[in-house]
Amino acid sequence: MHQSTVVIKYGGHAMDKPELSRAFAGDLALLAAQGMRLVVVHGGGPQISALLERLHIESRFADGLRITDAAVMEVVEMVLCGQVNKAVVSELAARGVAAAGISGRDGGLLRARRKNPALGLVGEVVSVDPALPRCLLDAGFVPVVAPVASGPDHEALNINADTAAGALAGALNAEYFVLVSDVPGVLDAQGELIPRLDAAQIAALRHSGVISGGMIPKVEACAGALAAGCGRALILDGRAPSSLRRFLLEDAPLGTVVTP
């Protein structure tokens, strides 16, 4: 595990609840002390919605993605790159972790094109240049990445955080890609946890509607990371105490492991 590169998508209740965010930061501090090279990609949907509401701007969604016009994109970038990113960095710093907050627009890290005209400034990643996070990792920092990308005309594009994290895990050839979620993992039609999934099973479960909504980008991110060279991918229940540490250090069977 020493010197393993681990890309972690951080969101859901693990970010929203102070006791869970403190526990997450404590886990990262312990893992960093073990010599792991950690990269955190965070979400921020609830925080974006809260500020839009305060500004009397309606939140609209299609296929689980936020419809993002120019006014909404200003808020998205402000919240993700400012408020949320710096809050995560500060939480890690309080545990003695040297963290550096960046966005996907820094150093050409994430480049994207518009996903669907009906969604506005929502992007899909077309290329990843991991040079900047590699520099930070080599210098002993934990990169904390806000999922905003640059478009063809250098405009800011809103990227699903699961998708951004999976793309980065693949580009870094990370040993582990961990999606910290607020669900136990992927559930079957009876609501039971599925401990392991491969690409064929994912396709069948999507076709039957068992995998739907917000779980679709999660399994797609895992599959994409694995196809690009990531070693292992996991959708982890972030509500379980020290779930990240227990999985990485003890190989505890928590969540759903996605295999090629």
Rank of each mutant, 00 (worst) to 15 (best):
H154E: 14
L28Q: 02
G120I: 11
V148A: 04
A98F: 13
S59F: 03
S90G: 13
D63H: 14
V89G: 02
V122H: 04
E155W: 00
I57S: 07
S103H: 07
V84I: 15
V148I: 14
H154G: 12
E58Y: 05
Q47A: 15
L136F: 04
V145K: 04
D129V: 11
K86Q: 14
E124P: 00
A32W: 03
L119M: 13
G140N: 06
M73Y: 01
P130Q: 06
L119N: 09
C135S: 14
V145F: 01
L38M: 09
A94R: 15
L31I: 12
R111V: 12
P147G: 09
R105C: 13
A131L: 13
A98K: 15
A93W: 08
R111G: 13
P143V: 02
L132E: 01
S103G: 13
S59Q: 10
M36T: 06
P130F: 11
C81Q: 10
G104H: 05
F61Q: 13
G43H: 01
S127K: 12
A94L: 12
L51A: 10
E74N: 14
D27M: 05
V145W: 03
Q34L: 13
R37A: 03
L65Q: 10
D63I: 10
D63L: 12
S49H: 07
S49V: 08
V40N: 03
R37G: 07
L110N: 01
A149F: 06
V122Y: 06
P46Y: 01
V79G: 00
G108M: 07
E77D: 14
R114I: 13
G123C: 05
C135D: 12
R95P: 08
R114K: 14
V144G: 01
A112G: 06
G44C: 01
R54C: 09
A139V: 05
E53F: 04
R105E: 12
L110K: 02
D63S: 14
V142C: 00
E124M: 09
V122A: 08
G43R: 02
C81G: 10
A62P: 00
S59R: 08
V97S: 00
G120K: 03
G151S: 08
